[in-house]
Simulated assay, not measured.
Amino acid sequence: MRFFTLTLLLISSLVSAKIVPATYFKTTQNFIDKMVKKHDFNRDELLTIFATVKFKITDKSIKKKDKKKYVKKPPMAWDKYRGLFLTEARINNGVKFWQDNLATLKRAEKTYNVPAEIIVAILGIETSYGAKKGTHPTFKTLTIRAFTNYRRQRFYRNELENFLLMSRENAIAPLSIKGSYAGAMGYTQFIASSYRHYAVDFDHDGVVDLFSSPADAIGSIANYFDKHHWHDFGEIARPISLHTKQLQHAKRANSKPKMTAKYWRKQGFDIDTDINNKTKLAFVRLPQKKIDENWLTFWNFYVLTRYNHDNRYAMAAYHLSEKIKQQFNQ
């Protein structure tokens, strides 16, 4: 009773200052009830950690819960986007990471049939090989996004539920975890649900640790792609020239290969002769300041977009992997 009395007094004092703890919101209280009933969490422990998160509030955020207006910005040109990731430093550091973790990457290749250079490239883009994992308190990030006027509240509440389960399953203090501004964590920048579904104990120390174990990060990325049906060491993409009428088939959004090479050949597309008639293909258009690039993409390119749905991300990962592999093999 003393704990609840103190909590109420704290809330009362903060409300007058337009700052309230997360427990002020009825939706948060309902969420805590759910975690207690569904997952057998300790109510007092949840109340304690949720009380650490404070919101600056307005009448709109409490009474109307208005969602922030979302204005979609035009995409960054592909040539500029590519330049953010295909840097000399990122390539050199990727080679060093590969050399430092050679045995683990070989084991990941053998276990999951995902090329080492792809795993290294993803780690390079996400966190510069673990150097930049994020500084935002993940519990606070998810709580604010789940219970104030952010977009995708349902998504963030689901991630908050998975985050608390992930913390308990791996014996990690929830308030100790830091990540990206949107709640992604560790070497791999997995969100909580991905951490629970795809992270693996690849160094066999009894703990699934994406915060300090490069081995677990390597194995988890490989497992992620394997679970999304990566075709063993299959091709990813190659450039293609398209006539004006064919450009409508080159999508700027991520595109799942559905039609075969045979089908596209019948439509008049100049598909390279080494590609089997049964191979399913798609076409990707990457916007640039002057002339857009067009690419013929295979299933594995689509799998790359499962990590991040932006075609530019997948293509940057592919290009970076090729640069790292080339320099590694020199």
Rank of each mutant, 00 (worst) to 15 (best):
D216Q: 09
P239S: 15
I218V: 13
D216P: 05
E235P: 02
K245E: 14
S255L: 07
H229F: 05
I221W: 04
Q248E: 09
H229W: 01
Y224E: 06
A215M: 02
F233G: 08
Y224Q: 06
N223V: 00
S255Q: 12
I240T: 10
H228W: 05
I221E: 02
A250H: 03
F225N: 03
I240D: 08
R238W: 03
S213A: 05
S212M: 08
I218L: 12
D216L: 13
I221V: 14
D226T: 02
L210V: 04
S212L: 13
H243G: 13
K251T: 02
A253T: 09
N223W: 02
R252I: 14
A237G: 07
K251E: 10
S255V: 12
F211C: 11
Q246A: 13
I236M: 10
A217Y: 04
L242H: 04
L242R: 05
L210D: 00
S220R: 05
D232E: 12
L210E: 00
K245C: 09
K245Y: 11
H243M: 11
G219P: 04
P214R: 01
S255G: 03
S220C: 09
T244S: 14
Q246D: 06
D216G: 12
K251A: 15
Q248W: 02
K245S: 15
F225T: 02
L210I: 12
R238F: 07
P239M: 15
L210C: 09
F211T: 11
D216V: 13
Q248I: 14
I240Y: 05
R252H: 05
W230I: 13
Q248F: 04
N254A: 15
A222P: 03
G219L: 12
D232V: 01
S220V: 10
S220T: 05
